[in-house]
Design a binder for these strands. Structure first.
Lengths: 192, 192
DNA sequence: CATTTACACTAGCGCTTGCTTGGTTACTCA
DNA sequence: TGAGTAACCAAGCAAGCGCTAGTGTAAATG
């Protein structure tokens, strides 16, 4: 068994697991299905992961780490203007959501399947990410760019963005950036 | 077995099932858990429902029928003013979402567990409900009340509203109506 | 060359799952 | 009073579940 190992092999297996978890849901994905997708037998799977739970945790951790890194990079690269930062954050959110779609869908819809220990550990990561959002929204509110309650606005915006995984078609005419811009425009009193 | 039966007993069992499905998720809810919650033995459950799938379909159908009825009533009762109708629709949405919370959470997050036949049948109901929304949003756009793409706006608004089940605390200081009003205010260029 | 390590295999244990079967009880209504 | 029926129960089957034990083997390591 390979506790806390970030080998490329394990990363690849995690990626495959994420795909299956999205397709079937965590509970309906059996270790035998996972093994087959990975090209090994079900017993061999437990050489890489302690148990099925650990696979789920690995999928979610991977996705959340990426989201955090991308959002930080996006914010670091753009100016201090609240509007620019708001748009950049929305774009970064959708970019991660769709380049790393499987992991994020799992994080959004299978979170409750995590055991308490894993959940506690990963909550910190998620909180760090949400803190970035709250900061950006606070700035936008203070600049008079948008209006409303800071708590509600951030929830509504995150809700609207996260829900896109339910209807957005990446092969359609709209890019994720279009979506992000339209959402920001929607909540801004003065359209560009 | 009691095919297509709307007896009060069955309604009550459906309500209990919805609660368990929310608590545990459909897949992790066993027929034995359902039976225990209902105060009967697991075998007896199949006197009321053909199989586990049918329980899920019953839960979702019940919830969606209610939502449709409430939304229609709300729209029928209010004036023709686009802003009033938009607010009424948002309020109706959240009202159903939280008075009949269990059924709606199941409908939102366990829909894919429906077998194709049930899914096809229930899709019509859901489409009828969404059509109400699109009409209201179209009117608001035409009246210049809000701005943006009609498709995107309705998706974003529904996403923001549906996502509330993930964070809203009914025992908190805010009422569902407050939430609805704040959301409408957020997307309107001219705050009240 | 000997030993360890990484990764895979086969086989199957112990348990839970959805669902069936065959029969019993309680109530309704002619 | 007795036939019909809705609602329940005890028992258990077949299939599938997560996971373990023990083994084989090729490559890295001393």
């Amino acid at each position: 068994m390979n506790v806390m190992n970030a080998s490329p092999r394990r990363k690849e297996l995690t990626r495959l697991a994420a795909q299956l978890f999205v397709q079937e849901g965590f509970d309906r994905t059996t270790v035998r299905m996972l093994a087959q997708e990975m090209g090994i037998k079900s017993g061999s799977l437990f050489h890489h992961f302690k148990d099925k739970q650990e696979i789920l945790a690995a999928v979610i951790e991977e996705g959340t780490q990426n989201a955090l890194a991308i959002a930080r990079k996006a914010l670091a690269e753009c100016a201090a203007d609240p509007e620019v930062r708001l748009r950049a954050m929305a774009r970064a959110h959708l970019e991660t959501l769709f380049t790393d779609r499987n992991a994020h869908v799992v994080a959004l819809f299978e979170w409750r399947r995590l055991d308490p220990a894993a959940s506690a550990h990963l909550s910190h990561l998620r909180d760090a990410y949400e803190a970035l959002w709250v900061a950006v929204i606070d700035d936008a509110l203070e600049a008079g760019l948008i209006h409303g309650d800071r708590f509600l606005v951030s929830r509504f915006v995150l809700g609207a963005l996260n829900w896109t995984v339910r209807w957005y078609d990446p092969n359609g005419p709209r890019s994720p950036d279009d979506l992000a811009d339209e959402l920001v425009a929607m909540i801004m009193p003065t359209p560009a």
